[in-house]
Structures are given as C-alpha cells and as structure tokens.
C-alpha cells in the first residue's frame, strides 16, 4: 500500500507546481482563481492521499482520508465563492481582445 504513496505524491507535487506557475503567469483574476483551485483541490488532495497510503494501515490514514474529502468539498466551493464575489463586484474577465 505504501508504494502507492509515491505516484500520488508526485501527482500532488506536479499540480502544485503547475498551479503556482499558473498563479504567476495567467492574465486575470478568474483564470488565476482557476489555477489556485486546482492547486488546492487536486494538489493538496493527492498529497493527503499519498500520506494516507504511506501511513496505512492505521487511524491516522483514516483521518487523512477524511481531510482529503473535506478538501475535495471545500476547495471548489471556496473558489466558486471567490469567483462569484468578483463577478458581482464587476471584475471583467480577460478576453482575447485584451492585450
């Protein structure tokens, strides 16, 4: 089981890296929020899963699994709320017409 930790950990690290690059390079609020959401959900989720596998079997791995599920719910909700608030405030999305 603990061998499964390696691929999940790598997936998590990759998503964190990609999301960080996205956060720095993407042009507007909405696309950056999209990158941050990936980082939060898939990145942190995979790393939590990797840790759960690494500590399997045991109570801690169940707790980590619970945390992963929470992240899966909370991450997208948070970025949805952010995007919605920005939309209501009138933050205009980036389009191909913009420089």
């Amino acid at each position: 089981m603990s061998l499964l930790a390696i691929p999940f950990g790598l997936i998590g690290a990759f998503f964190f890296l990609a999301a960080t690059i996205g956060l720095l390079r993407l042009p507007d609020f909405y696309s950056r929020a999209h990158a941050a959401a990936k980082c939060d959900t898939v990145g942190a989720g995979s790393i939590l899963l990797a840790l759960a596998f690494a500590l399997c079997p045991g109570l801690a791995s169940f707790q980590l699994l619970g945390l992963a599920i929470l992240i899966l719910i909370a991450g997208p909700t948070a970025s949805h709320a952010l995007a919605r608030a920005a939309d209501r405030r009138g933050v205009a999305p980036w389009t191909t017409d913009d420089p």
Partner: peptide, 15 residues
C-alpha cells in the same frame, strides 16, 4: 446577507 450562492449554501449546510 446578500442572497447566498446555492452551491455555497448547500456545502455549508452539509459540513
């Protein structure tokens, strides 16, 4: 409160 987003409202009720 400003009318909450149905998604946020559902998730907050859930958790």
């Amino acid at each position: 409160a400003a009318s909450p987003s149905p998604i946020v409202a559902f998730i907050v009720r859930l958790v």
